[in-house]
Amino acid sequence: MNDAVVWLTIFVLSVFVGIEVISKVSSTLHTPLMSGANAIHGIILLGAILVTGTTDNGVAVAVGLVAIVLAAVNMVGGFVVTDRMLQMFVRKKKPAPSSVDGAVEGSGGAK
């Protein structure tokens, strides 16, 4: 198979995977999902490292370093902020121990 065709195949399959994995997302999670997807494209950091580390032209290195800083903001900030949001979704469930549950029920009955 032609090299470009292999890449095209990966691309097309990824499109379907991308749509398929989020097709059942509830609107509750739209914001964290958008933010998480946003963090994932921060992987351009890898590309920025590769182009910067394989050249010795001064200007190119400088531009590459700028790209690295930008991409690192995207990637690291994106994952951290997504985690911060999702943490709140988990925290509020607060599974109370069963004994406390009983006590609450008891006091409710006493009222």
């Binding site: 691309f11 499109v15 994995v21 958008m34 494209h41 890898l46």
Partner: peptide
């Protein structure tokens, strides 16, 4: 670089759908 291709496409497709 395959990881950039796949990650980018995933975000592109899911982002468009969203």
């Amino acid at each position: 670089n395959v990881v950039l291709l796949v990650a980018g496409t995933l975000v592109g497709a899911s982002g468009t759908f969203l």
